[in-house]
């Protein structure tokens, strides 16, 4: 049985819910002969993957939905074996090369070469190219991105790329200029509400609009999250009533608690405790960017107006460093320390 998130995912371009302008653009791109390389970006839970799948279906028909999970093995020049999971169909291949670390360059080149070597069997009826979907391109090393750029030009006749990432900041300029950038923005709260309502009705649950509003507000524009939260609620009780406590993810509560600690006392001992708590959150694979934004969301309201600008400035600075650096804890902790110092300075004088 599938989760609601998967079950009610739109499969065709015509059935996409929000971002109607974008949908029109996508339709026209697919209809044309010449399909460009795409770079799809936007926040998590906004529907990037859904749109990519819709585009693929529009290009190749339902055959593209018959996928297999294949573990590919790559060999590095130093004879190390790397395993990477890919999703394959006759028409496309999907992979996230970011987590092979420094060897991503080899992976990217090998996959595209392999795809480009075999052209479509029936090129009369079908599109003359295949598609390589690369997820999380922003985690690729610069080296790999440059390699990608070269390979992209070389095999552009038989192979198109769809890249997806959350932010463009870590994608190199030459790569950006070779692709058509498509921004998928997060759905507004009302859209989320209406989608939730439709889903809940189809699942035959009772629900009050107020609860839906509450859920959509707490999902921070992340549709996947909204659906998951609703499903968790539904799993507990048949009737979705007003006043039910919405189960927030425990790591969020945990971070809220941590923020409370930071606001209460600002000294080295607290920082040591906060460090331990950050370790714990990180150990659950919560992405460090999300930890940052959650912390800021909790800390900001407690600050005086004149401090707010500075806090945001600090957060931006350290998050940027985190993107460039390798050890998340250094930057998270540095932010917390800087915040404590600032808070002491402004609130206690």
């Amino acid at each position: 049985m599938a989760l609601w998130v998967d079950k009610y995912r739109p499969r065709e371009i015509g059935k996409l819910d929000y971002n109607n302008d974008l949908t029109e653009v996508l339709k026209s791109i697919v209809a044309r002969e010449d399909f460009p390389h795409l770079l799809v970006y936007g926040p998590s839970g906004a529907g990037k993957k859904t749109r990519i799948n819709c585009i693929l279906k529009e290009l190749y028909g339902s055959g593209v939905e018959r996928t297999t999970l294949v573990t590919k093995t790559f060999t590095t020049p130093s004879n190390r074996k790397l395993d990477l999971q890919t999703v394959n169909s006759n028409y496309h291949i999907e992979l996230a090369p970011g987590d092979v670390g420094n060897y991503d360059r080899i992976v990217v080149q090998d996959v595209i070469k392999e795809m480009a070597q075999f052209s479509q069997i029936d090129s009369e009826k079908q599109k003359p190219f295949k598609v390589v979907v690369l997820h999380e391109v922003d985690t690729l090393t610069r080296d790999a991105q440059h390699a990608l750029r070269r390979t992209m030009e070389k095999y552009s006749r038989t192979c198109r790329l769809i890249l997806s990432c959350e932010s463009l900041s870590r994608v190199i300029d030459p790569l950006r200029s070779r692709c058509m950038a498509v921004r998928v923005s997060a759905p507004p709260t009302e859209e989320i509400e209406s989608i939730l309502e439709r889903v809940v009705k189809k699942e035959k649950y009772d629900v009050t609009p107020k609860l839906l509003m509450e859920i959509s507000e707490k999902s921070y524009g992340n549709l996947r999250r909204a659906l998951l939260m609703t499903e968790t609620l539904a799993a507990r009780e048949q009737k979705l009533k007003e006043g039910m406590t919405i189960v927030e993810p425990d790591w969020e509560l945990y971070l809220r608690e941590t923020a409370g600690m930071i606001l209460k006392t600002q000294n080295n001992e607290t920082l040591l405790k906060v460090r331990e708590r950050l370790y714990e959150v990180l150990s659950r694979c919560i992405p460090s960017n999300i930890i940052f934004s959650t912390l800021i969301r909790e800390l900001l309201p407690a600050c005086r107006p004149e401090a707010k600008v500075e806090v945001i400035h600090l957060a931006a600075e350290y998050q940027h460093r985190l993107c460039k650096g390798s050890k998340a804890i250094f930057h998270l902790e540095a932010f917390v320390a800087a915040f404590m110092e600032l808070y002491c300075r402004i609130h206690k004088t």
């Binding site: 600002q266 080295n268 940027h320 460093r321 650096g325 050890k327 250094f330 404590m340």
Partner: peptide, 25 residues
């Protein structure tokens, strides 16, 4: 005190971002 800590951590963080892999190999 927290002021020194803040300065120290700032350096550690800056160094980490300056010496890590992404920008240049």
């Amino acid at each position: 005190n927290i002021k020194s800590t803040c300065k120290i951590l700032d350096t550690i963080s800056a160094m980490d971002s300056a010496t890590s892999y992404w920008e240049t190999r």
